[in-house]
Design a protein around this nucleic acid. Structure first.
Lengths: 335, 335
DNA sequence: CTGAAAGCGCTTACAG
DNA sequence: CTGAAAGCGCTTACAG
């Protein structure tokens, strides 16, 4: 690979001059500058970012550890994060934890060894020790969507409490009384929060949330299928199911279809996280939409503030209900 | 950040000894080893990968430039690539070109400056100069899914010709005679290949493929919607549309729905790339499935061969038709 | 405006 | 079995 030395000698300048022209240092004579530039073009010189990072102690890179790339919510989030970071001159390296603690640790370790300038994490269940160490060691860090209690870093997330209440009101108005939920891992904040909101909403309608109606999922398709199967095997199955993410909703549909059951006639279905396909499923699915893009932007903003030595606050945005036909009647307002 | 020097002095050894124990060099006395190890743990020392990379001239990192993260096909591909790479001790950095030439160039440049050991690319339309330079300069490189003519690097892709013929046979058997296609950018190999296969299949049934039935898409949702709208505005609209990727199929459904039209009664629909949601759309969508996971694995294998100085061949896998109800009658065999 | 020189944190061939 | 030393490719404070 051609290095700064090759450029310097070919241009007849010292190695100190090359970065000066490349990094737009003001004090360079115009003809020196153009001489260097033409040699750079001719040799196809491309600065070595590794060497630069070692020297400057910054990589201009952010790490993003998400719980599951195959989940469209996280894909959209990752995309927003990358866009926002790039606008500010940062790259992002994505680690996919696949909802597995060990994989999360692996990615955090790798990212730390790579000396990323800051870390954005949507923590998965368990495997939190390394994150905690990094935070303690002062690594700039921001949680997005999910967080870990007791680690004091800014959290950027969307509060779904209101939307969950709206959903329960919607289901209740359509006559559903036996409402069930498929939650995420209980250690997960979003897993918890959504279940808590659902329970409290039910309470305000005088409805119970029995244990058998509280499915244990892990945010992946198969767990949604399993939880739905368990519901259907109950002596008295629920008449409505709320899947707390879109993959578990997919699993629920898989199981309903397998049994030849119909939504919403045999069972109403709603999901947390809205995705484009929900408009075209049979029937279109009522969902709670997060402001995913803004979540990504705000998280990057907070993290870069930290990286560049400024303060950063937590941000709470709001999720909203989008009603469609999967809970019954009334084609919903889509705003 | 604590460095090798801190560890060395705390353990009372030279800096040369620290990497020896960390990198499992055989010749280290057991008590030296354990002394170093305990200091490492105590100080929470984490080797600086940037420094190591500069010294060893390898980053153990692969770059992956894909055309669109929001396309589930590429997400699945990226996931398979990361899995395969991790198994072999490599990390991967993903760049999302978003089907934009300039963004592709940006990511390739960034990846090259970062000195990734090899590059996996699914090139988007245009913006190919930098890829060509990199290939000429000897950067280990493999194309996956799409490729660029005239750049001599291995290509790992799935051939869809047979499946497209099967699709046309399926449509023909169901009585469709006015078949249209929404293609990708014509400079794109997959964009071309799929249109060519479609045209040749039509020919074998004595069917024409008029220009008005050849929609110009860019593999993104909106272009699928636009092409479908153009078809429907024709004096004689097609009775079947083949979208050459899943996002354009989504766009087609958006437009059909907007006009209150039904699939397959008003128009049959099929897509290249199968995704889990196609099973639950209204109606379930007939699609051509690629062996996405294997594509990713084989591409990584080829690239690592190149990186490690071995030879690497191109690989051609086979896509297959999965019939569902979106082209009419006959709930299909799903194998 | 430009050069000489130190140093970022590692790895590794060479001695001993 | 272990240390001293060179060097990877940059950046930048210091001279001039």
């Amino acid at each position: 690979m051609t290095s700064i030395k090759d450029v310097a000698s070919a241009a007849g300048v010292s190695v100190a001059t090359v970065p000066r022209v490349l990094n737009d240092h003001p004090a360079v004579r115009p003809d020196t500058r153009s001489r260097v530039l033409s040699v750079v073009a001719e040799l196809g010189y491309r600065p070595n970012g590794v060497a630069r990072s070692l020297r400057t102690d910054q990589t201009r890179t952010l790490g993003l550890v998400i719980s599951d790339v195959l989940n469209p919510f996280f894909t959209e989030l990752a995309r927003a994060v990358e866009d926002a970071a790039r606008e500010r001159g940062y790259s992002v390296i994505i680690g996919n934890a696949d909802e597995r603690a060990a994989l999360q640790e692996h990615h955090v370790r790798t990212l730390l060894e790579r000396r990323i300038d800051g870390l954005l994490v949507s923590p998965t269940e368990g495997g939190t020790a390394m994150i905690r160490d990094a935070a303690d060691a002062g690594t700039p860090m921001v949680f997005v969507d999910r967080w870990v209690h007791g680690i004091d870093v800014p959290v950027v997330h969307a509060d779904g409490t209101g939307a969950v209440h709206d959903l329960v009101a919607h289901l209740h108005a359509l006559g559903h009384r036996r409402l069930a939920i498929i939650g995420g891992p209980s250690e997960t904040t979003t897993g918890n929060e959504r279940v808590v909101a659902f329970r409290s909403a039910l309470q305000s309608y005088g409805l119970p949330l029995p244990d058998e109606y509280t499915g244990k999922g892990d945010f992946q398709t198969e767990s949604g299928r399993r939880a739905t199967a368990a519901f259907l095997d109950l002596p008295e199955p629920p008449d409505a199911v709320f899947a707390t993410d879109n993959l578990m909703a997919l699993g629920a549909m898989d199981e309903l279809r397998r049994r030849g059951l119909r939504v919403p006639d045999d069972m109403a279905l709603a999901a947390f996280d809205d995705i484009p396909w929900f408009l075209h499923t049979d029937p279109p699915i009522t969902a709670i939409a997060q402001p995913t893009g803004e979540l990504g932007h705000r998280a990057v903003q907070a993290l870069i503030n930290l990286v560049e030595g400024r303060a950063a606050d937590s941000v709470t945005l709001t999720a909203r209900l989008v009603t469609r036909r999967s809970c019954g009647e009334s084609e919903g307002s889509r705003r």
